[in-house]
């Protein structure tokens, strides 16, 4: 699945960031790296962008980018 498909409360472990160039760099800087765990926090009132929790910060991404970041859903029983 990709990050855009995530629902509020989902935890996703990133597998691949299929974006090139400066934007890729920026995403890596922010912690969207393969292996990182991302929480889906909430959608903007108009549905896009979506806020994610990654490496202890909240970052909002637009559909264009979040749809290209893929990973797998983690079953999390702790919370």
């Amino acid at each position: 699945m990709n990050l855009y498909e995530g629902n509020k409360g989902d935890r996703i472990r990133i597998k691949e960031v299929a974006i090139e160039g400066v934007m890729r760099r920026r995403l890596l800087d922010l912690g969207f790296v393969p292996g990182a765990v991302v929480d889906v926090l909430k959608k903007s009132p108009l549905g896009d962008p979506i806020a994610f929790r990654v490496s202890h910060t909240t970052i909002a991404l637009r559909k264009e980018e979040s749809i290209k970041i893929t990973g797998e859903l983690i079953q999390d029983d702790n919370e």
């Binding site: 160039g21 400066v22 934007m23 920026r26 995403l27 922010l30 962008p49 806020a51 910060t57 909240t58 970052i59 909002a60 991404l61 637009r62 264009e64 980018e65």
Partner: peptide, 9 residues
């Protein structure tokens, strides 16, 4: 080109 990220502190 466009790049968009927004931090919500």
């Amino acid at each position: 080109p466009t790049h968009y990220t927004l931090e919500l502190p």
